[in-house]
Write a protein that binds this DNA or RNA. Structure first.
Lengths: 232, 232
DNA sequence: CGCCTTTCTTGACGCGCATCAAAGAAAGGC
DNA sequence: GCCTTTCTTTGATGCGCGTCAAGAAAGGCG
């Protein structure tokens, strides 16, 4: 796979830990893959057979209860890594939210390669530590915040992640398109779709945001949103 | 520090990745430390100056909001590892729940040593991946479970972790002492202390558990508790 | 042992968010 | 273009859990 030299995430994915020769070696084991929005790549509970780098698109990690209640436990973006190396069972579903490109490896191939390349493992460790920090902050959100606080937090977080890559000419500075529908926002924040809709309209009524189309958000008053998350 | 050869967690802590020579080297950098119950070892937001292995005792990781709401985001037991290697800021408070012994290292010493010893980093990676899996399941609990489901889950989880090390002669099989007070259980589950107390008494009234003293739990009907967590 | 502090329980009450229901808006198919 | 399907909004209602307020039990300590 000589795609690697042209890969758009080559300098930000974990591959950046490797030199040219190593990349070539790893590249031979990788398979480029295309996912359509809605497609599920891995299922909760099944053996962990593959891992992958996200080249393009957004995917969700989710778990659910027997009666259908669902919780999104992670969202991954280009250059992120998905899958569970080192022999455990997959703990959550992995589903594409948008059309996506990934570069996948067989778990066993990847595990073997990683153990032989400490720099790669180190990169993976740093990513995993950062993801653990982020997930722990999320516990605070789910366990202790009100619906408004959750949503304000969510919007600010999304703007931090999404604004840069959104280069629409017109419109105010803090504008972006969410890769989520209302139900998915609810599944991220531990709310119902109705509550998400209502609080979003409250924000609109307060002049904090504008919602020109279903998935588009424009932040009109960032300080106002921040004051909601400040937890006086 | 020649304590290492006599260390009780030597075969289960991350040190188990190392051979005798390496352990001796790492041991020289480590300092044995004693904590009393309630003592806070690290503070949210401060620079990450040390990491440590837990030798004995139980500690909590917690974050809080400006108005005092608190969420426990992790609980660590003997042989677990605490602190944030590789240069980030500490994201949560670390507080001893019981008297505790730890073996601590300066972050910078440890980072340098770890980067030079891939086997150690690998062990740390496996631990971090497992902790991330556990934390993500916790998201499901906080985001989507009712108070009773949360508590039943909690009790079963605690029994899995605590029963083995509790060798009190008398009493039924599934008996253990929690290292938590009611408030701490509430802070783990995203509830209030009153709700914890009420649901616990419900379980008692249903004959599922017995609570002979404040911190002691005896599971009388495990299947009954499990059916609560099954989410029909 | 008695006093004091801390922790836990119990009750009354109300709010926030879920639930149930239905209408409205956007998107996709042909 | 119209029709169907899917997603979102809006309204009415109710329950679960939080909040507020005592009171009871358990520890700690002189």
């Amino acid at each position: 796979m000589d795609h690697c030299s042209a890969c758009v995430v080559r300098n930000s994915a974990i591959c950046s830990a490797l030199d040219m020769d190593e990349i070539a070696l790893l590249g031979k084991m990788g398979r480029h893959h295309k996912l359509v929005a809605g497609q599920t790549l891995m299922w909760e509970g099944e053996d962990s057979l593959l891992v992958a780098n996200i080249i393009d698109g957004v995917l969700k990690l989710s778990t659910s209860l027997a009666d259908g209640r669902e919780q999104i436990v992670g969202v991954v973006y280009p250059s992120d890594f998905i899958g569970r190396p080192f022999g455990a069972r997959t703990q959550h579903n992995v589903t594409a939210l948008t059309d996506a490109h990934i570069c996948s490896f067989s778990s066993s191939d990847f595990d073997r390669f990683a153990r032989a390349h400490p720099e790669l493992e180190h990169k993976l460790l740093e990513r995993t530590l950062a993801e653990l920090d982020r997930t722990r902050r999320w516990l605070l959100l789910l366990g202790r915040m009100t619906a408004s606080e959750k949503l304000a937090h969510f919007l600010l977080d999304m703007s931090a992640r999404l604004v840069k890559q959104d280069c629409r000419a017109a419109g105010p500075a803090d504008a972006f398109d969410l890769p989520f529908g209302r139900q998915q926002i609810a599944d991220i924040l531990g709310l119902t779709i109705e509550t998400v809709s209502r609080r979003l309209n409250d924000f609109k009524a307060q002049g904090l945001i504008e919602v020109p189309s279903r998935r588009r958000i424009e932040i009109l008053n960032r300080a106002g949103l921040e004051s909601i998350t400040d937890a006086v």
